[in-house]
């Protein structure tokens, strides 16, 4: 486990360096906008994500645990997916500046995974045992996409507020254009929604028969369904009534807030079969 610990520390340091590089890129002077930081920061994040994935692989092999069958590994996998998805879509949607949110997010979840409860409850039911990895993998992938959509939505609201007030701070010209953010929010939501739906369905089947006497389980289910309903409403309103921009951004922020509550419940109290 020495190698796993070493990989964890180095990954954390690389994520930290990536966060600093993105921060300098965003708030630094014209020199910080130069090619050096614009290329170094995503490279560091990519390196961190690779090392993070290697750390998960090594640790899960050593502990003989499937990465998507425990809460702390799931948190870790989520961070890797968020970083990877960002690196994949950043050029397409001109989202380079969002790395300043993604890199600290990856670092936070890497550290959080270290201190979360380690295992989900065991289940003897073979159907549920098969469903569990699908449930967690779908949710993790979906949440990774929603995390980026949330970051784009918050940035959209920040930019839109400056335009409406006609008062522009130093970050205004360094953040992505409004339409690019809006397009990114929508497409990430579209990609994440089927995964969340699969997660909700498998979760519902998996949870059948479990007595929801536990208040945390009840809260988790309620917030999970609420976030699904909110994301569905945002997509539906955009398709049917052309709701985009600020309204869509608020919807995404609200939906993701519910998702975060579910994650927090998982982190603070593991699922019980």
């Amino acid at each position: 486990m020495v190698w796993a610990d070493l990989a964890f520390v180095v990954t954390a340091l690389v994520y930290l360096a990536a966060s600093a590089a993105f921060g300098i890129y965003l708030v630094g002077g014209p020199r910080a906008q130069s090619t050096l930081f614009a290329t170094t920061a995503p490279f560091l994040l990519g390196l961190g994500a690779c090392m993070h994935a290697a750390h998960i692989g090594v640790t899960s092999f050593a502990l003989r645990v499937c990465p998507v069958e425990s809460v702390h590994f799931s948190m870790s996998v989520l961070a890797v997916f968020v970083a990877a998805t960002y690196l994949f879509v950043r050029r397409r949607f001109q989202l380079n500046a969002l790395g300043a949110v993604v890199a600290p997010f990856a670092l936070t979840f890497l550290l959080a995974s270290r201190f979360a409860f380690s295992r989900l409850g065991e289940t003897a039911n073979p159907v549920r045992r098969v469903l569990l990895p699908f449930h967690i993998a779908a949710n993790v992938l979906g949440i990774a996409l929603f995390t980026l959509a949330f970051a784009a939505a918050v940035t959209y609201l920040f930019q839109e507020r400056q335009l409406k007030r006609k008062e522009f701070g130093g970050l205004f010209r360094r953040l992505p254009p409004l339409e690019a953010l809006d397009r990114a929010e929508h497409q990430l939501l579209l990609a994440g929604f089927p995964l969340l739906t699969l997660g909700i369905l498998t979760g519902t089947v998996w949870a059948r028969g479990i007595e929801l006497g536990d208040s945390a389980s009840i809260a988790r289910a309620i917030f999970g369904y609420a976030s699904w309903a909110l994301f569905a409403a945002v997509l539906l309103a955009r398709a049917a009534a052309g709701w985009r921009g600020r309204r869509a951004a608020y919807g995404i922020v609200a939906g993701y807030s519910f998702t975060l509550v579910v994650i927090l419940i998982y982190l603070l109290r593991p699922a019980v079969t």
Partner: peptide, 9 residues
Amino acid sequence: VDLAEQIFG
């Protein structure tokens, strides 16, 4: 032009 680019890219 700059403002338009910040809105539309």
